[in-house]
Amino acid sequence: MGELFTWLNDQLLRMQWLSDFVTWVLADGFGLDMTSRVAGSVHFFIYDVIKIFILLSVLIFSISYVQSYFPPERTRRILGQRQGLGANTLAALLGTLTPFCSCSSIPLFIGFTSAGLPLSVTFSFLISSPLVDLASVILLASIFNWTIALSYVVVGLILAVFGGTLIGYLRLEKQVEGFVFQSPVSDHDNDGQISRRERLAYARDQVSDIVHRVWLYVLVGVGIGAAIHNWIPESFIAATLGQDRWWSVFVATIAGVPMYADIFGTLPIAEALVQKGVGVGTALAFMMSVTALSLPSMIMLKRVVKLPLLAIFIGIVTVGIIVIGYLFNSATHLLI
């Protein structure tokens, strides 16, 4: 049983067959010396790009199918029926079902707030939504392992619940632009009740939408990963971001905050960093800060909330990510 799981994991998730196939094509087909740097980079690039696109398409399709049961209007109704920590936890969990990019966070923020959902619940959802989604979990399992993937989900959810709760506790309603509360509440949806054919069509549309949106990030991310993998000296990386440098998590997080990229584009960078001896916590902190916070999403959020709330939101998430990074680094022996 254990062997079967390992085999399935290696072939389906890690796609060992693909790695072997790429090696075979490069070595036998093009006569490249596979121990050379160029061949190593080319192999990393081709293998990762194909692997990420296969996993991405399959995963987005399955997740979108599930997500079709939970349109934002229904999510809002479900969350409106609960209170306290339960509502925050549910918001964080429902956030994982949404492969929303930060571009849809403004309509959701206004839609949730104008309908009377507390800020704490809305922020739990907004933090969890870009940070943790099922596709990124499976990809993490594929690139690292299941322990890291599941730990990532758990700490991501905790950050979402905690961050949202803290924002609620600070009573910042006055820091939301007035027009948000006056926006009308529209309820033109189907409550997730659509036919299977419509769900399949929706899932297929989502795959093409998301692939269109992220393909460039994936290529750039894998390109950077391939460069790190074979061209940047290990000693340089170790000296700047190495495990024993106390500032590594801090630097990785702050560098990631203004960056805008999809989690699928950042994973290959994290992968290459870890292979170069960067702590898992440092790599994850970088990934989390790139995906959870970005300059474009901050500029968008600024239109609906006032500066103090925006600063508090950024502050809580950044500090949370840094703490998570150090936790993961100090628990590395349990994870790998």
Partner: peptide, 11 residues
């Protein structure tokens, strides 16, 4: 996006 949300539309 803000104008869209002004109609109460989330998706």
């Amino acid at each position: 996006v803000v104008a869209i949300a002004g109609y109460g539309v989330m998706s």
